[in-house]
């Protein structure tokens, strides 16, 4: 008798599958997930966890949170980050201290793995949702993340 129950189950499961796709078919006009990209450039909003490029946010006083610890440089598996650092005198304490000169990020080498962002102890670098990164010149993909004349936010090292 398993012969007939096989037929019954077969038909039942096929109809279940068809009802699922049928529902999708009926709701597809509202729920289409396709983005008609260049047309909706103005309204297109990337989702939160999208990995476009690594950026270093600066606040209104042109201060970032990078201490120059180089952990991101070490974490990067393919050497996309180079930190050029220097030592200077800390004004408040008068002691010698490490600070960054340039945080260089090679977007062309980056695989968007996110290890640098995980590694950073002070959350100085984050993901930005910008994906329109194509250029006509490779050198434009090498970016300096800290802005000129920016300095580290006070108290971030403590």
């Amino acid at each position: 008798m398993s012969y007939f129950s096989n037929i019954y189950n077969g038909i039942k499961t096929l109809l279940t599958g068809m009802s699922v796709t049928g529902k999708y078919f009926l709701t597809s006009r509202k729920g289409a997930i396709t983005q008609q990209y260049p047309d909706n450039r103005d309204t297109l909003k990337m989702f939160e966890r999208f990995r476009g490029e690594v950026v270093m946010p600066h606040d209104e006083n042109n201060e970032h949170q990078c201490t120059g610890c180089q952990k991101c440089e070490l974490a990067c598996p393919n050497g996309s980050i180079e930190i050029i650092w220097d030592r200077g005198i800390d004004e408040t304490t008068g002691k010698k201290k490490k600070f960054i000169d340039k945080h260089i990020y090679h977007l062309g080498l980056c695989t968007m793995c996110g290890l640098c962002i995980e590694a950073c102890p002070t959350d100085a670098i984050v993901w930005a949702p910008n994906f329109e990164n194509s250029t006509y010149d490779r050198t434009q993909l090498t970016k300096v993340l800290n802005r000129p004349d920016s300095k580290v936010k006070a108290g971030i090292e403590d």
Binding site: T21, Y24, S28, R29, A32, I33, T34, Q36
Partner: peptide, 10 residues
């Protein structure tokens, strides 16, 4: 077109 609608595409 039908395939697209079944797969929630356009």
């Amino acid at each position: 077109r039908v395939a697209a609608w079944f797969q929630l595409r356009i």
